[in-house]
Amino acid sequence: MLKAHVIRRSWKTALAYLIVGGWSLFAVLMILWIIIASLKTTRSLFGAPWTLPSAPAFSNYVKVWVSNRFDDYFLNSILVVSASVLVLLLVAVPAAYVLSRGKFLGRGAILNFFIFGMGVPVPLLFIPLVVLTTELGVIDTLMGLSIVYVSVSLPFTIYVLQGFFSSLPAELESAAVIDGCSDWQVFWHVMLPLAAPGAATVAILNFVALWNEYQLSLILISSPENRTLSLGIYSLITSMQYSGGNWPGLFAGVTMVMLPTIALYIFLSERMISGITMGGVK
């Protein structure tokens, strides 16, 4: 009986490993294929898609980086996304703490308001955002895009962090208050350090989401000098019609977009996973 149970469990584990392992292998192979494709010529890419390039064409990267202005787009993306995530944390962490721990009239309503915000489809915001950013004089600017990114990311971030703060033991706060801490000191010296894994998690999730964001930047950014990387990729794809298909160049651009998020995940994945499993999103 026990043996049958152990065998059944082993099978389940093996199946789980097979599915997860197969999925991971597929993802890794696809990433490698994209990187290899970015080093080929168009002819060899389509003529022999599964072979290694005979002579790596690094010129694809040079062309995309210089001629297609990916140097500017990369810098724009770094600036916009970093600034947005920083401001987002500055706003969302205190807000989530207050919504989690504070006892005041309308707390539930405010929290529900943020949760409701998560359900608003982004395309519905296009026209109001264009009008608003124009009136504020920040349309087609990186600052305007950052403001919008912070605004649309707030509901999800506050929701996750609020759950995270709620999972922390109230006894720690009480002890700090007994020791003579003010509200601010309790937040700054006790709760914020405890919430660091949660804050890091939402920072990474938002960084990846905003790094890949496309729809809002397409609508709000028109000047080529203000384009982000996702718009750069879009312009590479669309310019293939009428101007020639630079497919290896496209894959070089995709690699440039992909690598920072992969690196981020490699270096910070443990912290992110611990944040998710410790917090309220488990």
Partner: peptide, 20 residues
């Protein structure tokens, strides 16, 4: 000149709404 690329008309519509 604003070199918008192929999404030109889509971007222009939004810009016209905003009075550009």
């Amino acid at each position: 000149v604003v070199w918008n690329g192929r999404g030109n008309q889509t971007k222009l519509r939004a810009a016209l709404q905003a009075g550009t």
